[in-house]
Simulated assay, not measured.
Amino acid sequence: MSALQTSSAIPGGKPGSPATAASTGASEAFAVLRHARRVWAVAAIHAEIERLREAHHELAARLLPGDRLVYLGNLIGHGAATIETLDELLAFRRDFLCLPGAEPEDIVYLRGAQEEMWRKLLQIQFAPSPREVLDWMLRHGMEPMLRGYGIEPAQAQAVLREGALSISRWTNALRATIRRHPGHDELFGCLRRAAYTEGGELLFVHAGIDPNIALAAQSDHLWWGSPAFRSLNQPYAGFRRVISGCNPRGEGAHLDAFTCCLDGGAGFGGALNVACFSLDGAVVESFAI
């Protein structure tokens, strides 16, 4: 990808701006990247552990003081190495926080479609048709995640035939299983819907946004994208660039005037893309593993 510079007004309190998101009580759902000089973004990983390890090795050699790091969701799902991927993310977090001046809020993990499904799975006793919901999840990447925690999909499907009480016991047991892996529960608990630089220059999302909806009101568009995202022809809420990590429509990576998608197809035979953005929206470094 080549660098592309754009400019626009810094967002204020208008609908969809960071100020509005915070003032409407949504601030805990959004991460604010403060005092950033540059921001690195990692595309959807889909539990491609070897690509992630290589990407971390490359990142470690390129990080500079003042850099921030955002993982753009779909950390897991589809790929088989669920546990190893989460452990690697936690290990690199420790390394990142050893950098001079690094703070915990300088590294952010977004909730992707896979993590959103996982969150819904842990509440599946409240779904109107739990078996149908689980079947849909299994077809969309959930099966390796269950197996990673030692749960056979057939066992889960059998439990879902038994009623709400049995399902609640099963989800509680699944939560306990997650907690037996150090850091996993905490990592799932710190996932954010989106992240943005404190001056309103860059917005980081999983799959995209609907340009006609305020940031605080974006819901499924964050996980599944919007056809209107690619056609964005002006700054969204004043952001100079909106960066996503997954293209649910399989269109791959792109760099347009106001948007960028880093999805290189990791987990489906493609590359894991990583890019570094300056606050003017330019791609200043990038690599693919």
Rank of each mutant, 00 (worst) to 15 (best):
T6E: 10
S7E: 12
S8N: 08
I10G: 02
P11T: 06
P15H: 03
G16D: 02
A21T: 04
G25Q: 07
R37C: 12
V42K: 09
A43V: 00
A43N: 05
I45M: 00
A47S: 15
E48Y: 01
R51M: 13
L52K: 01
L64K: 15
P65H: 09
G66F: 04
Y71Q: 03
L72T: 00
N74I: 00
N74H: 06
A80F: 08
A81D: 12
A81C: 03
A81V: 01
T82E: 09
I83S: 07
L89N: 13
R94T: 08
D95Y: 14
F96K: 05
L97R: 09
C98R: 15
E105M: 11
I107W: 08
L110Q: 10
L110N: 14
F126T: 05
A127Y: 02
P128K: 03
M137F: 15
H140Y: 10
G141E: 08
M142K: 05
E143N: 04
M145P: 02
L146F: 05
R147M: 11
E152T: 13
G163W: 02
L165R: 10
W170T: 01
T171M: 06
N172M: 11
A176E: 11
P182R: 11
H184W: 01
D185F: 15
E186W: 04
E186Q: 14
L187A: 08
L191Y: 02
R192N: 09
G199H: 14
E201G: 01
F204S: 15
V205D: 13
V205F: 07
P211N: 11
A217S: 10
S219R: 14
S219H: 13
D220F: 10
W223Q: 10
W224L: 12
G225K: 03
G225S: 15
A237K: 00
A237L: 00
F239M: 11
V242I: 05
S244D: 11
C246G: 04
C246H: 14
N247R: 13
N247Q: 09
H254L: 03
H254S: 06
F258M: 11
C260Q: 12
C260P: 06
L262K: 06
V274R: 12
F277A: 07
L279V: 08
V283M: 15
V283C: 15
A288G: 03
A288R: 13
I289K: 09
I289P: 02
